[in-house]
C-alpha cells in the first residue's frame, strides 16, 4: 500500500494574526511555519501503519512556493519517504485540489487533515476525491490495516462507526487518528536532507473564490467579575442578563 499525506504549511498556532495593505493580505513577517496540526497527526498515523508492516511508501505533498520546503523537510524528518512540492501559490481549495489531483494517482490511501488552521477551508480532501472519481470518508478518527484491508473509524453525530471502503480512498482525518504528533529525531533530521523532494510545475487552474478583505474581531467587552464567595450571583446573571439558563 502507498500512502500520500497532504501537507498544509500554516503559521504556528501561537502566531499573532496581522494583516497588511488595507487588510487585504496576511502579514507573514516573522511568522514561524509548521505542518498543519491535523496533517501532522495524519502523517503520524501513516508512520505507525508503516512500522506495523503493509505500507511500502509514504509520500507527502504540498502546493506552495519555495518557502514551504522547510515544512516538507520536517515531514521527511518525521519519516515520510519522499516529498512533492507543486510550485504555485495556493490560491484556494479548488486550485490546490486541482494541482494535487495530478500527483495523487498512484496512491491507495490519501490522507488529508479535516481542515487547515489558517483558512479553515475543509475543502481540499473532498474536492480531490471528486476530481479523481474515488471514494472519500470524512471525520475519520481511526485507521487500521488488517491483512491488507483498511478499517476506517468515522465519527457520526451521536457516535462512531467502523467502515470498509475500497481503495483508492481519501480519508479526511481529525483528532483521534493519532494521539501525539511525532517529533523528528536527530537521526530523522539527518536522513531527511538526503530524501527526494521533487518540485513539480503547476497545471493551469483558476481559483473560484477570492479573499477580498480580513478583519480582526472587535475587542470583547470587559469581563464582568463576580466575587468568589458570591457565586450564586453568577447564576442570576446568566439567567436574567445573558438569558442562557
Amino acid at each position: 500500500m502507498k500512502i500520500l499525506v497532504l501537507i498544509s504549511n500554516v503559521p504556528d498556532t501561537t502566531t499573532k494574526i496581522r494583516f497588511t495593505g488595507d487588510n487585504k493580505a496576511f502579514d507573514a513577517t516573522g511568522v514561524q511555519w509548521i505542518i498543519n496540526p491535523w496533517d501532522e497527526l495524519a502523517l503520524t498515523r501513516a508512520m505507525e501503519l508503516k512500522e506495523a508492516g503493509g505500507v511500502e511508501k509514504i509520500t507527502v505533498a504540498n502546493v506552495g512556493a519555495k518557502i514551504t520546503e522547510p515544512t516538507l523537510r520536517k515531514a521527511l524528518a518525521v519519516g515520510a519517504d519522499d516529498a512533492i512540492r507543486i510550485d504555485a501559490e495556493p490560491l484556494d481549495a479548488y486550485f490546490v485540489a486541482t494541482q494535487l489531483a495530478e500527483v495523487a494517482k498512484d496512491y491507495d490511501l490519501i490522507l488529508a487533515g479535516i481542515e487547515a488552521s489558517d483558512y479553515n477551508g475543509a475543502g481540499v480532501g473532498g474536492m480531490l476525491a471528486e476530481m479523481m472519481g474515488i471514494n472519500s470518508v470524512s471525520a475519520v478518527s481511526g485507521i487500521d490495516l488488517e491483512n491488507g484491508e483498511l478499517k476506517i473509524h468515522r465519527d457520526i453525530d451521536g457516535g462512531s462507526q467502523v467502515l470498509t471502503v475500497p481503495t483508492p480512498l481519501v480519508a479526511i482525518v481529525q483528532k483521534g487518528i493519532a494521539i501525539d504528533p511525532r517529533i523528528p529525531a536527530m537521526r530523522g533530521i539527518m536522513m531527511a536532507r538526503k530524501k527526494p523532494l521533487n518540485v513539480v510545475p503547476p497545471v493551469d487552474a483558476e481559483a473560484r473564490t477570492e479573499f477580498l478583505t480580513y478583519e480582526l474581531p472587535a475587542p470583547k467587552a470587559a469581563c464582568k467579575m463576580v466575587d468568589e464567595d458570591n457565586a450564586k450571583e453568577l447564576v442570576r446573571l446568566l439567567r436574567e442578563e445573558a438569558k442562557v439558563l
Binding site: 479548488y94 475543509a122 475543502g123 472519500s136 479526511i172
Partner: peptide, 20 residues
C-alpha cells in the same frame, strides 16, 4: 460532519466555488 463531508464533492460536480 455530514456537510463538511459532502459539500466539497458537490462543489466540484456543480463547477461551483465553495466557502465553508
Amino acid at each position: 460532519n455530514e456537510g463538511k463531508a459532502i459539500a466539497p464533492r458537490v462543489s466540484v460536480k456543480l463547477n461551483a466555488g465553495l466557502v465553508t
